[in-house]
Simulated assay, not measured.
Amino acid sequence: MSAASIGAVVIGRNEGARLIRCLRSLQGQVQQLIYVDSGSSDGSAEAARGLGAEVVDLDLSRPFTAARARNAGLAALRSGIELVQFVDGDCEVDPGWIPAAAAFLRTRPRAAAACGRRRERFPQASVYNRLCDAEWDTPVGEAAACGGDALMRVAAVYTAGGYRESLIAGEEPELCLRLRRAGWEIWRLDAEMTLHDAQMLRFGQWWNRSRRAGHAFAEGAALHGAGPERHWRTETRRALTWGAVLPAAIAAAGLISPALLLAALIYPVQVLRLSRRMGYERALFSVLGKFAEASGALEYHWRRRRGTARGILEYK
């Protein structure tokens, strides 16, 4: 499949130099380059136009979501574009990725999406960047979902109805679930795909990102958890159990007898248990992250009961 039938949709908000690097990595690789701007104030839209990208400005009267941005870019694709590379504006696309992914999709007519290895550009800058880099290292082969960077068949995404615009996070796995229900396949290839710049240097950033994940888990489970895939039910249950139910139970027990507060030792024990599989650093933050995820999940259910929706939760 030639570049003549491939487009790219880049989404971003105030990404600065990262966006420039992203757009330049796509020049000459696609026939149509689209940048969807979500209200940037740093001149991103003007810089993108200067690099030859078509710019779509999201309607400021509606809440921003990455799903909205991707759908807006999808709608701007010209007739004849068969494949679209979705990519976040803080990522640089590997020069070999699009040819490799397009060749794979050509040989797998039921494959709707292909993703590869996303890596952190500066994994040693912080423990939080290293955690991201490990998170991106997903198993190679047929997969349940891809992330924000993926080469997709335009027809498959249209047929599935595009991204669910109300989701503040987790929109990619939700779309992939609907694609798989329609008989499509999602693949993770053994190929370099993108360099991502999380720029996550503070604990508060990591906490907000984890809280957003918990919100996504709870909303995804509410949408599709009753289906055969049990979408994100396990992740939601773990977050609520370790991050809310157990702490509340231990605190309540401590009111009866202070000695019962020793039950809190279950958390360091869990860290040591997980360390055997993922190493101490990842294990520690996996356990700590359950508190943030529980916060996000509880917020989702609280807002759902009140009939209100949350805006985007940024960590940069």
Rank of each mutant, 00 (worst) to 15 (best):
A155H: 10
S275E: 12
A103Y: 08
R49N: 04
R164S: 08
A309W: 08
R181M: 08
L51I: 09
P173F: 01
E46G: 10
G162E: 05
R49I: 03
L260E: 02
V271D: 11
A222C: 10
V245G: 13
L167A: 04
G12D: 02
E185Y: 03
A294S: 13
K290E: 13
L177Y: 03
I186W: 01
G307S: 04
A125C: 10
Q124V: 09
L261Q: 07
E229Q: 14
P228I: 10
W136Q: 06
Q270S: 14
L189W: 01
G12N: 05
G50M: 10
Q32R: 14
A248N: 09
S41G: 15
S61C: 12
A218F: 03
L167S: 01
L246C: 07
A160I: 04
Q270H: 11
T138K: 15
G307I: 05
R277V: 04
G96A: 14
P247F: 04
R78M: 06
V87T: 14
G289L: 05
A8V: 11
S166R: 14
E235Q: 13
L179V: 03
W97K: 01
G183R: 12
A226V: 09
S79G: 13
A244I: 04
I81D: 09
G311W: 09
A198V: 05
A294G: 09
R18W: 08
G73H: 03
Q205F: 07
N14E: 06
A252M: 13
R62M: 07
W187E: 03
L265Y: 09
G254Q: 11
D88T: 12
L151D: 01
A72N: 08
E171V: 01
V10D: 03
A213E: 14
P95I: 05
G147R: 10
R62A: 10
D133V: 06
A112F: 02
A292S: 15
L195E: 01
E192A: 15
A112R: 02
G89T: 05
A252H: 10
V127W: 03
R106G: 05
A103V: 07
V287Q: 06
A47S: 15
L298W: 07
I20K: 13
R118W: 04
A47T: 14
I168N: 00
G147A: 11
L272C: 14
R110T: 11
M1W: 09
V269E: 04
T236M: 08
A113R: 02
N208C: 12
A114L: 11
R121K: 15
V154N: 07
A112T: 02
P99H: 06
Y163A: 05
E299Q: 14
Q27S: 15
A4K: 13
A8P: 04
T194R: 05
C115Y: 06
I20V: 14
R24D: 07
R277A: 12
F217R: 07
S257G: 11
V157F: 08
